[in-house]
Structures are given as C-alpha cells and as structure tokens.
Design a binder for these strands. Structure first.
Lengths: 213, 213
DNA sequence: CCCCGACTGGACTTGCTGGTCCATTTTCTC
DNA sequence: GAGAAAATGGACCAGCAAGTCCAGTCGGGG
C-alpha cells in the first residue's frame, strides 16, 4: 500500500512461482531480522535463510537492500494490527477491552526482545520517507481503532461523555508503544501492563467517582 | 559507572590533555550520531568532526567502535535525567508537576527526530549487555524519581492514598517513552503531550471524584 | 634538562558486503 | 513445441570502513 509507488510495475509481471519466491524472501528476511537485528544482517544471511541466490534478491528488489527492508517493514506493520484482531475491532464492552489487553500483552511477551519495526525504522528511517510513512500510517490506524473503541464505550454509557476519545487514544497508544520499547531493553513487561491497566482504569474512573486502582 | 569495568585502567593514566581529547571525542561523536544516525556514521565522520586521528580514537577506545558508541550512550543517558532537573527532583505540588511536564515536552521537541539513545541501543544493543545495562539503569532511575514524586503528592494529601506509586510511575514512564518514540516517527508531539497530561489527570482524579479531562 | 610514557598523525591492510553480470533453466503463451 | 519472458545460479567486482602500525611530537616528573 505504501510501497506501491515505485515497483508495482513488477508486481504485475510476476508469475505464480515468482510471487511465492518473493513472499518467501520477505518472510525469511523478516525472521532473520527479528532474530539478529538489522545492523548485523547481511544479504547473504537472508540468502542463506531463504534458499535464494543473489540475483533473485535483486530480481525482486531491484533497488537493493533498502527496498527489501522496506518491504519487510510493511510486512511487519501489517501483522501488528492483524494480531490484535478481532479484539481491536470490537472494543465496546469492558470484557472486550480486557480481552484485547491480554492479546496485546501476550503478543508482545511472545515477541520478546525482538523489535521488528523499531529497528527497521531506524535502519531505513532517515534515508527515505518510506519507512516513516509506514510507521505513521500504522500509528494513525491503531489510534483510530482505539478511539473508535472509546466512542463505543461512550455510546454504551460506560465512560464519561466529556472524555476526549482521540486524546485518550493517543495517550494509550503512547503507553503501549513505550511499554513495548521498555520491554525491549529490560525484557520486563511490567511497564506495558501498567500502561494498559492504568489507561483502562482511567477510562473506567471517568464515569464513577473515584478511581479504583 | 557502567563502563567502569573494562577500560578504567586507562582512565587513571590519562593526562589533562588526554581527558580533554577523550571528552571532545565523546561529545563530538554524540553530535554526529544525533544528526545522521548511527547506521551511517563512520569513524571517519567522527574523526572529521572532532579533529582527531584514527590512532587517537583507538588510543582512547582500544576496543573500537562499540566501546566508543557505548561511551556515547552513557553520555546521552546521563543527560536525559539532568535535563529534567531540578523539576524531576521536586515533584511535590501540582505546579511542580506542570513545570516538569513542560520541561520534558520542551526538551524532546527541541531534540526533534533525533533519537540518541534509541538508535544507539539498537546499534550496540544485542551485541553486549553493556548498552542494555545503560538503558535499564536509566529507566530504573527515572521511574524511581517519578514514584518518589507521586509519594510526595500523597504525603501532601494531593492524591489518593490507595494509589500504587510504582505502578503509576511505570505507566507514566511508558507513556513518555512511547510519546517520544512516536514523535521520532511522525515528528508530532501530540502523543507525548497526551500521555503526560492524561497521566497527571489520572493522578488528580484519584482524589476528587470525577476526572476533569 | 632529559627521558619515558602519553599523545598524535596518517598511511596501509584487510575483510566484508552490497551490487553487477551473464549464462542457464524454467515457465508462460500462442 | 517454439520463442520469449521470467526465474535462477553463482562468479565477480568495487568501495568502504574498521582496525593496525610505526614514526614522530609533546609534556611532565626526577
């Protein structure tokens, strides 16, 4: 969706086998990058992992490594929201919020200290607007889903009508993001949980008087 | 404090001139790294910026680039908390919290999309425990300061006594961290502000009944 | 003032990695 | 089934950047 500007001319001229290979490269590369980080990952690593040759890499990604990394970034970004479904799409009761919370925690605890997007972003980040666009779009979408969830709560009379849904969603998103970041460094998911739980508590407290911690 | 294990033997045998040069290297390197990111920064860039020679770099950092990056990371980490003083040390009234909030926002808005620590962490990150230790210690200290601030509020009767200071501090720290991260990607400080303000609002709401957005 | 060790300069080596090229095989299309 | 286009294999190249080395200067303590 984002990379669709430059290389989609090729997308058309891809045979079934070609598409399969391309996908294999992207997925394999994603794996390698998650495991050892982009700083030390070479094209040969990816080649080895995906059972491909140098020429294949450049056949499918003519603009070289950056383009490949970008494709991987897009691949990872797509997974982020997918992995939160269907919960993220139905945040209309407190139970669904709790389920979503658990899904998020579970997803990132499983991921451990591998930070596919953060690292990729920093790798390609400054070079082109490409990576930035991917991350920005992801954040926008994510926040939108959260805000919609908060509005659902409001419509169900579960939170105060005076609550600014977008603002709350922004804060919550920041908390998640930071929680994940901290977990990358420390290996501890305490902060992520604290951010999620505190945010939900804040929402709940908006209606009834005092905040139950 | 953290790097003090391996190379401090050298620290002793440093003359005044030597210390000055070493400091110049670290500060200069920090500047270059902030500006162009570690992925594309070479020792020659640092050499040029600091007016030093290759041999000097390796004279002061015998273990090479990694050691230098680690020193820079420590240098940057030290600044993070320093830049929040004296506010971070005196979070006992709502006014002081507000001042601190403004200081944080101002600091990171000025920093823009340069992420000294995040990028450095990812560069050296997985290689050794060194970088990880630096970040972990920074987070620990930061959270501790925030928790102490919350306890000050409690002692002054400004927040609910049932509030878990450490948990709130963890959530707040995550929010800040994520806000900064998002600002790196999008260039927009909305999330950082939302995280800070929402967290403070949550603290205030813990005492009186309903939460004023 | 002199001498040893810290400090500096910069040429050189070396390994690696992204990227190129062309020859060969497979696959689609007519 | 034949020709073209796509897919694949792998040798090869070029540049760059980390790290080495030694020769020369400086500086301070005895």
């Amino acid at each position: 969706m984002v990379e669709g500007r430059h290389a989609d001319v090729m997308q058309d001229s891809l045979t079934a086998k070609g598409r399969a290979t391309r996908a294999r490269i992207v997925e394999g590369a994603a794996g390698v990058l998650r495991e050892q980080g982009p700083a030390v990952t070479t094209l040969d690593d990816i080649r080895a992992r995906t059972g491909t040759s140098k020429s294949q890499l450049f056949h499918y990604f003519p603009q070289g490594k950056d383009q490949l990394l970008l494709a991987v970034a897009q691949f990872e970004a797509d997974r982020v929201l997918e992995d939160q479904q269907p919960h993220l799409g139905r945040l209309d009761t407190w139970e669904s919020w709790q389920e979503w919370r658990d899904a998020v925690v579970e997803r990132y605890e499983r991921q451990g200290d591998e930070c596919p997007l953060g690292s990729l972003f920093l790798q390609v980040g400054r070079s082109g607007p490409g990576a930035r666009a991917i991350v920005t779009e992801l954040m926008r979408q994510w926040q939108e889903d959260l805000a919609r969830g908060i509005r659902s709560l409001r419509e169900n009379g579960l939170v105060s009508p005076s609550l600014d849904a977008d603002r709350e969603a922004a804060a919550l998103l920041a908390g998640i993001q930071g929680g994940v970041t901290i977990m990358m460094s420390t290996g501890d998911s305490t902060h992520l949980k604290a951010a999620l739980d505190t945010a939900v508590a804040h929402l709940r407290a908006s209606l009834h008087g005092t905040a139950p911690v």
